[in-house]
Design a protein around this nucleic acid. Structure first.
Lengths: 338, 338
DNA sequence: GTGAAAGCGCTAACAG
DNA sequence: CTGTTAGCGCTTTCAC
């Protein structure tokens, strides 16, 4: 029932080559026959068969997006920005949630490669490990198609990274707290991804610089990204530790919200008794009371840049392997002394 | 550089037909030759060309997921559940964000149809309109491939709906508030989607049943789903109205959070002075203080059922056109008298 | 069971 | 500028 290029060529009184040419916007077609063909296509609502086209062109204009969990409040934004930008450029997105296991990542990557996507975007830093051998699948993929990484850095031919300098953001946040006079600081996180490690670097650098005047510690909260109840339980089980600090910096807003809830339960005033800084400047930051001062890492901009880089790469243009941006501390009421 | 079915057939000393047969799990191959072929495939890491396969089978095992905005805290969950379930069944997902305009919806649908996806899933009720002519694109699509709708109902051959009875949920929520003694109720919403209209139905039914003893009103908040600041601005601009109620039911948790913030600003105690009920039982419900009593519509279950229905449909099994579930009011501290 | 051969619908030389 | 033709890699009759 679907018309083919043969039907159109016949009805238009030209060869299939000519039809194919107007289909692909070749300039080697006279304006007259082009119009003729176009009008026939239009009249019969002709749509080329995408599979045949894919076979001929070895591409279906599809980008694979890998992400650990597209329901994560931060990653879902990333996916949305990426998809919008890609769609605006005539590309489609194959979304593949991998979970947080190594096997999941590798299996999903393989699936996308087998489907011959034009490129792959890794949304989130969980895709690069600090153990070299765990990144081998990325190198392998990069030998076939462009590999674009959001929020992590990995130098290798064919791999292009777009990220925010998380170390710098956390460093700045910590320094700002110190400058404001907070002298007992805690860093709360819940991940060991690339980005998480970089944040830790920034934290450690700041602490080292003021080790003689500051008490500090790091707390790891092994709870799923959206399980507020468990986060609260965890914090309460560490109550005595938490109560000994007057400033807490969190690796994401959900953790910061949990800290706010903890503070309320223990009758601590925020920010007077306890200053809190979140990360990602998500919707959560404005849902609690007081609202969270939080690091904004300009995700929309990162995604824009990543897609722009991707098209440049596919266009054989010269693209820097790493594009780094800086985050920004957005002031609200959980920490105001700056 | 990629091997083809010809290479494999040659190395295995069989014809391409046989290779194709083992590829497709045909039982018309002797166990011996099957093993031979499989071992060769394995040895050379053979992966069939997905485009050629698509052309031959007229399918690339791909489901299109349409959603207005995959960064919406509720829709992102839906997309995640759907993708996981689909992936577990060997299918891939083409994600297409449409925005909230009619043109966006139709254009995206057309894109997916042109790509010959095996079916399409519409995540979210914004895809069905109460104006019949705006649903024509769905009927058109359904004449080609299965159309699965999440959270909306539209009866038509080839269209299968999976939803929660939102009218019932809101009706129950309102009734519960009335039973608890609240007599001045406000319904706050921000959408006119199918689901939004059904919620309104439930609301109106409840209000009609108690019109002699209750003061009630509906307020429409024309603000983007994730713009807490604007929601708050809007509520404050309607402060005198809001202050005249002692119970507010919201069409989603974000609005309910905004109400909680409003109450704090105006020194209203929740739930004593003002009871609040949210909707979706999302992460937001546990981020504010007090936490939100909220309607949970069992999204994960809905998505599971939808995908199960989809496979049944593709399998030519008999599937009910509409699968309806009931929501559940999850009790937290913004409304406790039940 | 297995193989030969004819498509699937389009792209891209190549020739004119 | 336009048409002829040979693929692209796989599926699927139809004989044997």
């Amino acid at each position: 029932m679907n018309l083919t290029i043969y039907d159109i060529s016949q009805k238009a009184g030209v060869s299939i080559a000519t039809v194919s040419r107007v289909l692909n916007g070749s300039d080697k077609v006279s304006e007259k026959t082009r119009q003729k063909v176009l009008s026939i296509m239009d009249e019969y609502h002709y749509k080329p068969n995408a599979f045949a086209r894919g076979l001929g062109l070895n591409s279906m204009q599809t980008i694979g997006i890998l992400c650990a969990d597209s329901s994560d409040i931060y990653l879902s934004k990333a996916v949305y920005y990426l998809e919008s930008k890609l769609q605006a450029n005539g590309y489609h997105c194959l979304l593949c949630c991998t979970g947080y296991s190594r096997e999941g990542r590798q299996a999903s990557m393989q699936l996308l490669l087998n489907r011959k996507v034009d490129a792959v975007i890794l949304a989130g830093s969980s895709f690069v490990s600090n153990q070299a051998e765990e990144n081998a699948y990325l190198f392998e993929a990069a030998s076939h198609i462009p590999v674009m990484i959001l929020n992590a850095e990995l130098q290798h031919p064919g791999i292009y990274c777009t990220l925010c300098d998380d170390a710098h953001s956390i460093y700045t946040a910590a320094k700002t707290m110190l400058t404001s006079g907070r002298d007992r600081l805690l860093y709360l996180n819940n991940s060991r991804s690339y980005s998480a490690l970089r944040k830790l670097d920034g934290w450690e650098k700041a602490m080292k610089e003021s080790e003689h005047t500051t008490t500090s510690s790091v707390l790891y909260c092994p709870v799923a990204h959206d399980d507020m109840e468990e986060m609260c339980v965890f914090l309460e089980s560490n109550a005595s530790l938490l109560l000994s600090y007057n400033g807490i910096i969190c690796a994401n807003d959900a953790l910061a919200v949990a800290v706010v809830k903890f503070a309320r339960k223990y009758h601590l005033n925020i920010p007077e008794d306890l200053a809190v800084i979140g990360y990602n400047n998500s919707l959560l930051a404005t849902c609690c009371e007081p609202e969270l001062t939080s690091v904004d890492n300009h995700l929309a901009q990162l995604c824009d840049q990543l897609v722009q880089n991707l098209f440049a790469v596919m266009n054989k243009e010269n693209v820097p392997p790493v594009s780094v941006y800086y985050g920004e501390l957005v002031k609200r009421n959980s920490f105001t002394d700056f």
